[in-house]
Amino acid sequence: MKRKKTLILIFITVLLGIGIIYYYFLSGPDEFLTEESLKEVFRNFSGGFDVEIQHIEFLSDKHVFVPFKSNDQYGTSHWVWRNRSWDLGDISTIQQPSIWKVDPKDPSTYKVLWNIDEDTTVTDFDVYLVNQRGYRVSNNVHQYTPKIQLHFNVDFESEENSYGMKNIPAEWVPIIENYMDVEDVRQPDASIFDFFHHSGLSFGWIPYDENREIKFPDSPNGHGSGYGEIHLYHMPIIPEHDLE
């Protein structure tokens, strides 16, 4: 009799455990935050100034991009559904485009996002995929890493809004996939010189003005904060001498 009771108890515990795991990690997200609560976050971030929510874009059911404007500053915010609540993952007024790996394992979900002052003299910008050329010799084994340098142009001037979103080009997807397939299972190298090797495939950008001169957005006092890992990368400017 006692045995039967124990079995039933174990059964109930397991069922409860599965239920909690499902509820906590797998069940769908609630409705997104109200404009009021979003505005409050943005107000706190920009020091009490009035804010305007420019747009709310769902990149997936758990990833939301919200560009906003306050006191002539242009901001981006990235929200994720995690641990049963809508969390602010990143907020910034630096006006630097970012790449958001919505599903890091699937490059076709990678998005380029930006929100840049419309009055700036920046007319367009290039988004780059690069891998530095490299070579190494260890234990008499030679290895060469070819240079990868690809880009696409965003005609910012002709965009309707200060904010925007673009998928990465379809040709980039298999490159990133192949690269990740190999890197993910690469065995750790016993050589202590291994740290010279980690450059890696990365993203970057270059903004231009109407004369095709490199021009940074006018961004007075921009700042930003990130909260936890949401696979969002603010793109660095590619130095011109790195281009071939």
Partner: peptide
């Protein structure tokens, strides 16, 4: 064939 990367790299750089 053996990788002769030094040559390629120096040619480039």
């Amino acid at each position: 064939v053996p990788v002769n990367n030094m040559e390629w790299y120096h040619d480039m750089v």
